[in-house]
Amino acid sequence: MKNDILTVMWKERKGLFRIRGRRAQALLGMFSPVLLAIFFPLQEGVEWVQSPLSLLLAFVAPLILVGMSIPDSFAGERERHTLPTLLASRLSDRAILFGKMITSVAFGWGVTLVLLAIGLVTVNIAHWDGHILFYKPSILLADLAFSFLVAMLTAGAGVLFSLRAATAQEAQQTLMAVLLIPPMILQFGLFAIMGSDSGKARLQEVLGALSFEQIILVIVAVLLVLDVVLLMAAMSRFKRARLILD
């Protein structure tokens, strides 16, 4: 199984962004995360490594990067008529599914870590005071966990849409639309709570009772549960017969 997953990953890595039009799309998609990794550290200085600001990058970057690559996993193969041949091979369902997901997560998470490093370099160059600035350990841990779980979440949701979409573009559009719903609900919920004095007080009370680490742990736990649910859903939806008939 491990060798089969590595084989799928080998092919995925070779083909990543080699498809016509995808390279330009990837460069365009990288624009926002790169801007975040340079602009915020430049503007915020020491705050970039001391406050939870870098969590924004840890959330946005894997979402965009995995969101660009994962829709192609099955929908792209279907579009290019390579899926039936792959399904007719000796590879197991799990090897195909995990090979594709791991490649996408590794790409999204890996680039996010590079971007966090770029942010660190930027803040050190722009705000050099004789000491090397580094992320606060709790912030760094949160960045690592957060970015990985967001990459997994995007990959899980992306695979679900990619398994059924006719084209990679359709899968990508659906994925992005769906991933935008939770932040929008959260935003409207916050607006509603902050609109009333009692709600505002209650929120401050709850948040005030929790430390930064506790808040991060709650978010990580929620993301972890969502990741597991999506992964299991993807595994159960991966049906060779259904993929052939689609």
């Binding site: 089969d4 084989t7 080998w10 092919k11 070779k14 083909g15 080699r18 498809i19 290019r80 008529h81 390579t82 039936p84 041949t85 792959l86 007719a88 091979s89 000796r90 590879l91």
Partner: peptide, 23 residues
């Protein structure tokens, strides 16, 4: 199968390399 199923973004050698690894 019905379509050749070759990966157009890969070279001919890599196409066979991939399936050789699979087997």
């Amino acid at each position: 199968l019905e379509h050749s199923g070759v990966y157009e973004q890969l070279s001919a050698e890599d196409n066979l390399e991939f399936y050789g690894r699979i087997w």
